[in-house]
């Protein structure tokens, strides 16, 4: 399955819906979207990965790159993911300590609100 991307604003936070496979072929599209959102002054991002079927190191690099970009503007990039196969990748790479990972979009947004 190819990569499908969408995004919407909820309570002032930009939610990015990702569906499909994030790999060396498709990751550039996600990177472009994240860069575009940051360039449009969206610094509070939630990436919903509930429908992601595959994620490799290229995809991780794009997410970390996005996090760096928003942090440069005092923003944050959190993830929504409950799939064990995807969570495992974050665990073995130690990135569970880098990203906020939540079970639902609402939970991620609530956590951002609480931080403010």
């Amino acid at each position: 399955m190819d990569l499908k991307l969408g995004h919407y604003n909820k309570d002032g936070i930009e939610v990015v819906d990702v569906e499909g496979e994030i790999d060396v072929y498709t990751a550039p599209r996600l990177r472009e979207l994240l860069i575009d959102l940051v360039n449009k002054n969206n610094y509070q991002l939630v990436v919903n990965m509930e429908k992601v079927e595959f994620l490799d190191s290229t995809g991780l690099g794009v997410l970390v790159g996005g996090l760096k970009r928003v942090r440069a503007h005092d923003g944050s990039l959190d993830l929504v993911c409950t799939q064990e196969r995807i969570l495992k990748i974050f665990r073995i790479t130690g990135l569970t300590k880098v990203f906020g990972i939540y079970a639902t979009v609402d939970e991620a947004i609530a956590a951002k609100r609480a931080e403010k």
Partner: peptide, 16 residues
């Protein structure tokens, strides 16, 4: 990789 500009992962990350 395809994400050199936006990536913060170190070289060799994939091998790791």
């Amino acid at each position: 990789g395809a994400d050199d500009e936006g990536s913060a992962t170190p070289p060799g990350f994939g091998l790791a």
